[in-house]
Amino acid sequence: MSAASTAVRAGLARGAIQFRQSITSPAEIFNHAFWPALALIAVVFLRRWHFGGTPLATLAVPSILGMNAAMAMVTMSQYLTADREDGTLLRAKATPHGMVGYLVGRLVSVSGGLLLDLALFFVPALLLADGLILNQLGRWLTLLWVLALALVATLPAGAVLGSAFGSSRSQGLLTLPILGVIGISGIFYPIAALPGWVQGIAQVFPLYWLGLGMRSALLPPDAVAVELGHSWRHLETVGVLGAWAVVGLLLAPVVLRRMARRESGSALAARRARALRTGGAR
């Protein structure tokens, strides 16, 4: 067995352990439950409004699934930054093919956490939103390929973002842009109701397409009337998400290798000293 395949096996085992830890720690359990709970509250409030004859709550459920899938990018970025700060990346760098094992482990743990978060939202949402269709094999297949594309399109991008931030505190710089993209991506209100230039900006990012793909899998056929062009646009969904996936897969290994080369004991010590000074100043 080659060293690379051994590293991959170790990464798979590491990811399984990290995921198991995330569902046994009270703090991690709260993190898993927090966003699904907020999303369910939003669905409850949206039940009273309709758009194009379809309840907004029904439109919002698949859109929120797509939003949560895209948020895996932020989770990946946060983990990478935290692991860089505490020396995990430095230890991975010191072992043969350690970065491969580290990356595989994080992909497994983040993907597992995402699936758990989606289930925590989706199962109760089925009781709150009427009109979702789940009794056709083709719809389940659509849901699966959209979710698979979501992971491939967002997790490498999250690794790139995580390598760009020097500390976990700077991760807050991601919050406002992401909230802005969520606001214009048709998550809680159909994008067709927004100005044309806003629609154009939203369609550059994967979040809109993830929501659209999820809606095509779960909503009745007549719900397409509220979408742009009155179409689910599967080809465009594959194209945009595929483009994000290709760019991310090309950039992530290069960026991670460059970041790993910069990691050293002295760099880690300097970051810890800066953190201590900052904490003392407060």
Rank of each mutant, 00 (worst) to 15 (best):
T88C: 11
A260I: 05
G52H: 07
S163P: 01
M67W: 12
G166D: 03
L228C: 06
P195D: 15
A150C: 13
W35K: 05
L161N: 06
H234G: 05
A70C: 04
V160F: 05
F45V: 08
P253I: 14
E227V: 08
T54L: 09
N31M: 10
G280Y: 13
G112S: 02
L38Q: 09
L256R: 09
L161H: 03
T54C: 04
F121H: 08
A39Y: 11
R262F: 00
L210S: 06
G265D: 10
L38Y: 07
A16G: 12
F45H: 05
S111A: 15
S5M: 08
G211T: 03
L141M: 14
V240H: 10
V246G: 06
V104C: 09
R233N: 05
G265R: 06
P156G: 13
Y189S: 13
Q21G: 15
L241D: 08
A150K: 07
L161F: 00
D130Q: 14
L103Q: 07
R47N: 13
L40C: 05
S185R: 04
W35Y: 15
E28A: 13
E236C: 01
M1P: 14
G242K: 11
R169K: 04
A157C: 10
W197Q: 15
V108T: 07
G186P: 12
P124Y: 14
W35L: 12
L40R: 06
V104H: 11
P96Y: 01
V204D: 13
A202V: 12
R233F: 14
A69I: 02
R20N: 13
Q136A: 07
W209F: 04
Y79A: 01
Q18K: 01
G131I: 07
H50L: 11
A60S: 13
S167K: 02
A153T: 05
S111Q: 03
L114F: 14
A119K: 12
V104D: 05
I187F: 15
F165W: 01
S2R: 05
F122Q: 04
P62A: 01
I184T: 05
